[in-house]
Design a binder for these strands. Sequence first.
DNA 1: ACAAAAGTGTTGGAGGTACACCCATGT
DNA 2: ACATGGGTGTACCTCCAACACTTTTGT
Lengths: 253, 253
Amino acid sequence: MTLHDDSPGIALAVSTVIFALRPDRPEVPSAPASLPSLWLPLVRRIRPPYEGQWALPGGPLQLDEDLEASAARTLAATTALAPNYLEQLYAFGTLDRSPDGAKDRVVSIVYWALVNADQASQATPASVETPDANVAWFSVDDLPDLAFDHDVIVEYALWRLRNKVEYSRIAHAFLGDTFTLAELREVHEAVLGRSLDPANFRRQIESSNAVVPTGKRVTGTSYRPPKLYRYNNAVDPADRGPLAPAVRPASAS
Amino acid sequence: MTLHDDSPGIALAVSTVIFALRPDRPEVPSAPASLPSLWLPLVRRIRPPYEGQWALPGGPLQLDEDLEASAARTLAATTALAPNYLEQLYAFGTLDRSPDGAKDRVVSIVYWALVNADQASQATPASVETPDANVAWFSVDDLPDLAFDHDVIVEYALWRLRNKVEYSRIAHAFLGDTFTLAELREVHEAVLGRSLDPANFRRQIESSNAVVPTGKRVTGTSYRPPKLYRYNNAVDPADRGPLAPAVRPASAS
DNA sequence: ACAAAAGTGTTGGAGGTACACCCATGT
DNA sequence: ACATGGGTGTACCTCCAACACTTTTGT
């Protein structure tokens, strides 16, 4: 079915919830080093409805663009990053999503993504604007009022993230190429909001074959230097939906 | 964004994968009673593309209709039933979904549903038409070639169903109001494709509080009459997405 | 009495949590 | 040497699979 010009129709948009992990107080490097916490970028709306309020990055689906490509494009536009993990979250389409008087009804297909905050254009801490004054990062514990039903969407994305960290292998997506087990554990702790036993965490990860030792170690520590690990590409991180046909190159089990 | 008449656009459709459980050979009542198996209704396409092939029931999203309502409507249109369970599956939107030459690109938001086969208009067994000659039920083990990417979609829906039966409480959706634990176990066995220990199954279900005894028993058996159970509405069956705010009327434990 | 399925008891193994303990390095 | 986090060993506990066993009905 094709929609007619000027008559009300159904607009199809793609939005993305982008998560990164940041230290809670980047402005005080010598601070007591509290746990890192989850942050996400929002964009300020520059036209009605909800003009001036913060919303998830996104936009109309382009005619020649896959859904996932659309999500990746808006992600790059807002963060100048490529996602380390990207998955469809849900399609939102209830009739009451747009305020009365809107021309078109909007159906939003929402993705969620994980990016490495270290690579991120170093946005200043709380709610301060990046070079693009209409993009800002917020802690998920301290979000402003969001446009549309985007607060519900963020809540659901958080729920999915916390669930998936427990039974999948996506935590490394917050980190760089190599990392220590302590760093990986801190990611889990920050996402789950509780501390984990280092000993048991190590065994879980090792028995899951999710990571492989690189042979290298961190240098410059004032204590026993930890081993560096790399993500094991032979195991697929998680079910990414019906697509993504489970990459399994031959690997020793 | 509104699409212009006659120019190519993006069409938004809603389809539904409908599962029911049926005995494998309903035509032979005295047969060795093999395990019941999963069946689903398909509709024959009456226009190009894929004219004459079988496809999932569905259609364009109506302007004034919620996504879930659209899924329920096509479900009722093909099976004359109300779903016992209905959940969004995934949004499919790759560029190659429609054959070349199609006017519009189609994005399909797909739901999956469970219905009680006993109530179903008693369709004759394998691939024989129902009153509506363009609807037929097929065993998931013996599906015809499907239009579009519907084979991938069905495969993914099956995967979700099998997963969710294990960690959720949706199996009762295949049954009537009351049922015995043996019946519920047969549902699990049929979906998972393996037999389960009756003793352990009983304990699992009882400890989960998913069902409550009605106090009644089955009569007319030639052996010890089993108790009848009813589904416990105080526990929510599963996460149905960001909506469905977890109904939890006051309940013990 | 017997068959058949309902329902109960008991055991052993797998996996997860808690926590004591040793190891390696810079200061 | 000692402080610090890396890394190992081990006991316990809980949950789950297997399977022997008892109970209750109709014939």
